[in-house]
Every structure is written in structure tokens, then in C-alpha cells.
């Protein structure tokens, strides 16, 4: 555990753990509403923020946060109003954001695409004290929203139309989800990079749901996987001199594969159990069972 003696490793581990918590915590709502790739889109848009940060010589983290939030809100607005060509509009936003970032950083005095690389793929060992402060504040916001409003966000993500009829402020909650996702992207930017952040939002959730039947358990296990892989990946990169961002993402995918293999017999057993129960409780209505009764897993 000698790595704990280095200040840069302490900062790296703290930042990594916070990303391990926040990325799946937001990602679960994106996966639930089948917008798993939204994090990727926000990551593209955030590049313009990084470029702007260099151009104006301000903190790229805060600038990326601001631009990512604007981009996420724009995506949400496109989802409301531009139903027909929404995907085209989103594509333009994504690639416009990416091209904007490359352009701005090249215009910036002393800037080059080499600076961009640490934001694209993460640069955990260069996380500064200021970065850690920013990451802590942003992570606190993300946890507050995703845990504090979990029932409301669950309802809106599960069935937006129904949520409106329960009187929930659906639009405000959708915007809040978008903003929270944008904040998470910039939290994760220094750790795994803008191009890999979406993996940490989606894959731990996908891995967790191999084992679970409930949303609450999926949330808890996804966060546990998130922390394990971010810390594990950071420590591995210390000993093996491999890029931490890529290590973390590959570890996450490894966890997904292992859990999927473990879960296949489990799912089969559950399906059999529930099929047996169905047969027992409708046995008194002979001939009433149609094809719709068959259990699908």
C-alpha cells in the first residue's frame, strides 16, 4: 500500500472513487429511459468547453461543466420539440461540439491537440488540488440529486406519461437529469476521459442488472462495481504503468462478462420458478391461458 504515501495517488484515488459512485448513479436513469449513449454525446459537447477553457485561460473543468450543461439542456429541448429530426439535430450537436473543441484549442495561445488528449482519455496522475475540489463539489451535487430524488427520477424514467399524471414536474426533472449527467461527465473527464466516460455510466448498470430484479438493488450493485473498478484500475495503472482510463473501462467490461456468465443459470432458475407459480395459480381456470401467459425473460 506504499502508493498511498504519494499525494498524487491520494488525489487520483479520491477522484477515481467519486467517479465510480457518480457515473453509475446517473447512468442508471439514462439506461432506464433508454438513452444510454447520452453521456457519450455530452462528452463530445464538453470538448468545446475544454477548448474554451484553454482559449480564455480559465479552468477547463469549470468551462467544460458550463458547456456540457448547456449542451445537455439543448439535447433535452431537442427531445421535446424536434421529434421528427431529433437524431439529426443531436448528431450535429455532438460533432459540432467535438469539432469546436479541436478548433478552439488550436486557436488558443500555446494550445495544441496534445493538451486535448488528457481530457479525451483522462490523465489521472495530473489531477491537481483544484481539480479535486471541483470534483468533490460536483460529485456531492450528483449524489444529492440521484439519491435524494430517486423515487421521482425513477417514476419519470420508467413512464414519463404516467409521471405527468401523478403531478410530478416532469420537464424540470428531465432537465435536472440532463444537467446532472453533464456534471457527471465533467467529473469523470480527468479520470477516464470524455470519450470513455459513457462506459462508466452504462456498463456497471448493465453488469449489475445481470444479477438483480429490483431497481434499488441494481443501483447499489452498479455503484459498488463502479467504485471497485475505478479504484482497482487506478491501483493497477500505478503498478503496471498502463493508462488508468482504459484500464478502468476494460475492467468494467470484464466484470460485465463475468457477471453475465454467472447469471445465466440464475436467470434460468428464476424463470422456471416463476413459470411453476403461474401454472399453479391459474390452474383453476382451465383453457384460459393464451400465448400471452408465457413468461418471457
Amino acid at each position: 500500500m506504499e502508493f498511498l504515501n504519494y499525494a498524487f495517488m491520494q488525489r487520483a484515488l479520491l477522484a477515481a472513487a467519486l467517479v465510480g459512485v457518480t457515473a453509475p448513479a446517473v447512468g442508471i436513469y439514462l439506461v432506464q429511459r433508454r438513452q444510454a449513449l447520452m453521456g457519450d454525446g455530452i462528452g463530445h459537447v464538453a470538448m468545446t468547453g475544454v477548448g474554451l477553457g484553454f482559449l480564455l485561460s480559465t479552468s477547463p473543468v469549470w468551462m467544460a461543466t458550463a458547456v456540457a450543461v448547456v449542451g445537455a439542456v439543448a439535447m433535452e429541448l431537442i427531445r421535446w420539440y424536434g421529434k421528427t429530426r431529433g437524431d439529426i439535430a443531436l448528431a450535429m450537436l455532438f460533432y459540432g461540439g467535438m469539432a469546436g473543441g479541436v478548433m478552439l484549442i488550436n486557436i488558443a495561445p500555446g494550445g495544441s491537440n496534445a493538451n486535448l488528449s488528457s481530457y479525451l482519455f483522462g490523465s489521472l496522475s495530473t489531477v491537481s488540488d483544484d481539480d479535486v475540489t471541483a470534483i468533490c463539489l460536483l460529485a456531492a451535487f450528483v449524489v444529492l440529486v440521484t439519491v435524494g430524488l430517486r423515487r421521482q427520477l425513477f417514476a419519470v424514467s420508467q413512464d414519463e406519461e404516467f409521471a405527468r399524471v401523478t403531478g410530478l414536474p416532469v420537464r424540470a426533472l428531465n432537465l435536472l437529469t440532463a444537467v446532472t449527467a453533464a456534471v457527471t461527465v465533467t467529473v469523470a473527464m480527468r479520470v477516464v476521459g470524455l470519450l470513455l466516460v459513457s462506459a462508466l455510466m452504462v456498463v456497471p448498470v448493465a453488469a449489475a442488472q445481470q444479477l438483480t430484479r429490483s431497481f434499488a438493488a441494481t443501483f447499489a450493485i452498479a455503484v459498488a462495481i463502479g467504485i471497485s473498478v475505478t479504484l482497482g484500475g487506478t491501483v493497477t495503472s500505478y503498478y503496471q504503468d498502463v493508462p488508468p482510463g482504459a484500464t478502468i473501462v476494460l475492467l468494467t467490461i470484464g466484470v460485465f462478462i463475468v457477471l453475465t456468465l454467472l447469471a445465466t443459470p440464475l436467470a434460468r432458475r428464476r424463470a422456471r420458478a416463476s413459470a411453476a407459480r403461474d401454472a399453479a395459480c391459474t390452474a383453476d381456470v382451465p383453457g384460459a391461458r393464451g400465448t400471452a401467459d408465457e413468461v418471457t425473460v
Binding site: 432506464q32 417514476a155 420508467q158 409521471a163 401523478t166 410530478l168 431497481f215
Partner: peptide, 19 residues
């Protein structure tokens, strides 16, 4: 949705208009 949810979790979301 894209994430598993139990029957109880889904039904509970209908209670948010009171809670």
C-alpha cells in the same frame, strides 16, 4: 424501462402524487 424494477417499485411510483 431499461433497468429491472420490481412490481412493488412500479406500483409505489403511483403513490408519489400523495407522498
Amino acid at each position: 424501462g431499461g433497468v429491472p424494477a420490481t412490481v412493488t417499485e412500479v406500483v409505489t411510483s403511483g403513490r408519489l402524487s400523495r407522498a
